[in-house]
């Protein structure tokens, strides 16, 4: 089983994701966006960073690439897809997840640890959490204010406090087997720098892929 870690120009969370996968006993493969092909991987992670320098809007340029077209095929066939931070922004811009991520309110870059609650444990990435479990994860973003229109989205994570002005304090959203979240679970797996709150996300994926 191979988990693709999709990389665009400006992605910078890829090695942290690879390490988190390794610690969870999963094999990750760093895949440059031009090399990404649908059907080649068992799961996909779009790592965080600043794809294309956040030009136009965070995630907007990457969302228009051929790689994301191929990713849509994978998502349609049920392949687990995870977007972290800028990866979440890309998934939303591409329409793979509902809503939009706007500049934070108040308008500032936030880089700190926050507490989130896991509100949906029926995704390939959250199955090992308890419903309502509080997890401490770091955030680092300037455009994380989640809004939606029409039907209420399937929130997967919610901030326990107002972090960036997001509607209903939504920190992560799921649709099918696609999950996007602003906090960084890959930066909360090593016990010497965190409480390890992100580990269950990667272990959930391993369990899901093995069933």
């Amino acid at each position: 089983m191979v988990v693709a870690v999709l990389k665009f120009p400006g992605t910078n969370g890829d090695f942290d994701v690879l390490r988190a996968l390794q610690l969870a006993g999963l094999r990750g493969a760093l895949v440059w966006h031009k090399d990404y092909r649908a059907g080649a991987y068992d799961a996909v992670v779009i790592a965080g960073g600043f794809s294309y320098g956040d030009r136009l809007r965070a995630g907007a340029i990457a969302a228009a690439t051929k790689a994301v077209e191929e990713l849509k095929e994978d998502a349609d066939r049920g392949t687990p897809v995870l977007g972290i931070c800028n990866g979440f922004q890309i998934l939303v811009e591409a329409g793979l997840l509902p809503g939009a991520l706007l500049p934070n309110d108040p308008p500032r870059f936030i880089s700190r640890w926050v507490e989130v609650s896991v509100v949906d444990v029926n995704t390939p990435f959250t199955a090992l959490y308890e419903e309502g479990e509080a997890v401490r994860l770091p955030v680092a973003h300037g455009e994380g204010r989640y809004i939606y229109w029409g039907n209420r989205p399937r929130a997967a994570f919610k901030y326990l406090e107002d972090v960036n002005g997001s509607a209903e304090r939504i920190a992560g959203v799921a649709k099918g087997n696609v999950l996007g979240l602003m906090p960084h679970p890959e930066r909360a797996v090593d016990r010497h720098v965190s409480a390890g709150g992100g580990a269950k996300l990667w272990l959930s994926l391993r369990a899901w892929l093995r069933t």
Binding site: L102, P103, P107, R145
Partner: peptide, 10 residues
Amino acid sequence: HIKDPEGETI
């Protein structure tokens, strides 16, 4: 109807 925190700060 979309909140504009940047405009508000300016």
